[in-house]
Structure formats: C-alpha cells, structure tokens
C-alpha cells in the first residue's frame, strides 16, 4: 500500500487550486479566495492611496481582474496573491496619476466601528492611523510600497521582491530608508497621539 502523502499544500498552492476550481465553475472557491485576498488587496490599496472609497474600488477591480484571468492562469508561473498585489499596486499608481493636481487627500467617513473597542480607543486608532498615513504619503512610491508590504501586510522580503520585481537587496534598501524617514516623521507626535499611555 502506498504511504499517505502527509505534506500539506502551501497557501499559495491552495490559492492556485481554488482559482482553477473557480475557472471550472465552482462558486464556493470564489468565496474562499475572496475571504483570503480581499483584506490584503483593500489594506494595500488603502495605505497606497490613503482613500477608503478609492481603495474599495481598487480592491473590487483587482478581484474582478483575477476572476477574468482565472481560465488563463498557469500554475507555477506566479503566486496568486503576488499577482493581486501587483494589480493593486498598478491600479493605485494609476489612481495617483489621475489625482495629481487635485487638492489634498479626501477624508473619508470611517467604517462602522469595531464594537470591541471603546469610543476613545477608536478615536486614538483613527488619529494614529491617520498620522501614519500622513507619514507614508511623504515617502517616495517605492519606499512606501515596500514598507506597507513588509510591516502592514507582513510579507517577507523575498515575496516583496517578487511583487515589486526587484532584488531582495533592493527591498532591504528601500525598507531601511523608509523606516528611517517614518521614524523621524512620527517621533515628534508620540505624546500628541497618546503613545506614552501604551
């Protein structure tokens, strides 16, 4: 009797399998992929654009593009999530080009709050998140993308290198410079934003 294969497929392999199932007509596969990929697409778009409404549109557009290319997906060529990150990045760059020349960033209404957080905590979160966004917006595009992927999306440097199509060394250089700038920009706001209370 052949021994059972105990190796578990990686999340990336699982995503490719789900995409193939979707292309074959399995709608349940779309639900699983949506749960996995939408938060990442939305989170990246939000930090690159600083605009919740635009980030929502970009996340939806990226997922539609994923559905449409599903029949043409070639397993082993790339990771599905890496592909989504690239599409989101490109859509955000397009958004930035379109917005160039307009005044300031739009201030969006916050989403329904997490009931587990107190109102004071939510306000402090919003203030800190906004401060971080303000600092991120001052970084060059590539530094901002590398920082967001590394510290908000928790991607390891080799994956960031895949998404950005650069070397791991270049990723390390971008994140190092970005971190120095962010630390400097936010250093003076610790007390203002209640850092000392944490």
């Amino acid at each position: 009797m052949a021994s059972a294969d105990v190796s578990q497929p990686s999340p990336e392999d699982e995503e490719a399998r789900l995409l193939a199932a979707f292309a074959a007509g399995d709608h349940a596969a779309a639900a699983v992929l949506t749960d996995r990929l939408t938060p990442r697409a939305f989170g990246l778009a939000l930090r690159l654009t600083g605009d919740r409404a635009e980030a929502e549109d970009i996340a939806q557009e990226a997922m539609v593009r994923l559905w449409r290319m599903a029949p043409d997906w070639e397993p082993g060529t790339a990771k599905v999530s890496t592909w989504v990150y690239r599409v989101v990045t490109n859509l955000c760059l397009d958004h930035k080009r379109r917005r160039r020349g307009r005044d300031g960033a739009l201030d969006d209404a916050p989403e329904p709050a997490d009931e587990a957080q107190s109102a004071a905590d939510q306000m402090q979160d919003a203030a800190r998140s906004s401060a971080l966004q303000g600092a991120l917006d001052q970084l060059p595009d590539r530094q901002r993308l590398a920082i967001v992927l590394r510290h908000l999306q928790d991607l390891p440097n080799p994956r960031i290198a895949e998404v950005m199509e650069i070397s791991v060394e270049a990723v390390e250089s971008l994140t190092a410079r970005g971190k120095r700038t962010l630390t400097r920009l936010l250093a003076g706001r610790k007390e203002e934003l209640g850092y000392e209370d944490d």
């Binding site: 939000l46 800190r128 998140s129 850092y195």
Partner: peptide, 11 residues
C-alpha cells in the same frame, strides 16, 4: 502603536 492602529483600520 501606529502600525497596530493602521492594521486594525485596514481589517
């Protein structure tokens, strides 16, 4: 604190 706040908002 900034990173954690942004993650909660992104989620």
């Amino acid at each position: 604190p900034w990173i954690a706040a942004a993650r909660r908002e992104d989620a």
